[in-house]
């Protein structure tokens, strides 16, 4: 808590050194400046795109995986073990691996897409304004969809099998069964995953910083990266702290909304 309060204090200073001097007090000027900071609007936009893209893709792929792995077949245990590997891989190692896979000259991604006939020339994924954001999103999806799959798999095993049987007797198709029986039962798990994925994506810094440092042309400049750049590259500590304060406010709102939704559901459970 103390660091947070201290951060709020710093945001009131017009400081270029990390420890503000008394003479640099600037009141709310930094917050006023935020309104006219083009980087901030961009960072918010990128953060939203990054988070929505990552969360939805991970949840969708994770759900598909869980549904497919639900039926037992030889090699299911191995499949589950492999699904543990991506989120057991440290973030920095993931960034190194994908950085090399995205390599514009010798990268595996270009090779695979060209072999499949999708591409005719190599693309510099991380340097292309068009592809950099999807590229970093994919890294995060790779890391967290398996977590979703494993968690959902556990939830699916708790669905009452006899419900499936009676639904099938009544002539329900797979889509109806999923929408009417499966989804309502695992809804709490899906909600928790939604929250966890959102938290993780909003916070993501390491992979983006290592692979693109927010570039090219700020296309991958999420809020977490923007704060770091202001403080430790541009040395505008006051501005950085003001953005951080904004970030804290957004988190407070998000947490409060979640709490309200939770408590509204509680009596029903």
């Amino acid at each position: 808590m103390y660091p947070m309060a201290r951060g709020l204090l710093v945001s009131l200073y017009d400081s270029r050194s990390l420890v503000p001097q008394p003479g640099e007090f600037a009141g709310l000027a930094n917050y006023y400046r935020l309104l006219h900071l083009p980087e901030l609007a961009n960072a918010l936009r990128v953060t939203v795109l990054y988070t929505v893209g990552t969360v939805l893709l991970s949840l969708a792929i994770g759900m598909a995986c869980a549904l497919l792995l639900q039926s037992s077949f030889p090699g299911r245990g191995l499949a589950r073990a492999i699904l543990t590997v991506p989120w057991g891989t440290p973030l920095v190692a993931s960034a190194l691996i994908w950085y090399w896979m995205y390599d514009p000259q010798y990268g595996l991604v270009d090779f695979a897409l060209r072999s499949a006939g999708v591409l005719h020339a190599n693309i510099s994924w991380l340097l292309s304004p068009r592809w950099a954001l999807p590229a970093v999103v994919l890294v995060d999806v790779w890391r967290i969809f398996p977590f979703g799959a494993v968690v959902l798999l556990t939830a699916l095993s708790s669905v009452d099998q006899s419900m499936y049987d009676s639904a099938r007797v009544d002539g329900a198709g797979p889509v109806t069964i999923f929408a009417r029986i499966t989804l309502p039962t695992i809804r709490p798990t899906v909600m928790i995953l939604l929250l966890l994925f959102t938290i993780w994506s909003l916070k993501r810094f390491d992979t983006i910083w290592i692979m693109t440092q927010g570039g090219p042309a700020d296309r991958t400049n999420v809020l977490a990266v923007e704060i770091y750049r202001e403080a430790f590259r541009n040395f505008r500590v006051g501005i950085a702290s003001a953005i951080a304060a904004l970030g804290i406010t957004l988190s407070v709102v998000a947490t409060a909304v979640y709490f309200m939704l939770e408590s509204r559901h509680e009596p029903a459970v």
Partner: peptide, 25 residues
Amino acid sequence: SFLLLLTQMLPSTVLIVPLFIVFKE
């Protein structure tokens, strides 16, 4: 419990400037 959840939602970069100052002192 609200505070505990909130701290999880914060990006680490939000904390680095204030922590840097505290650690320096």
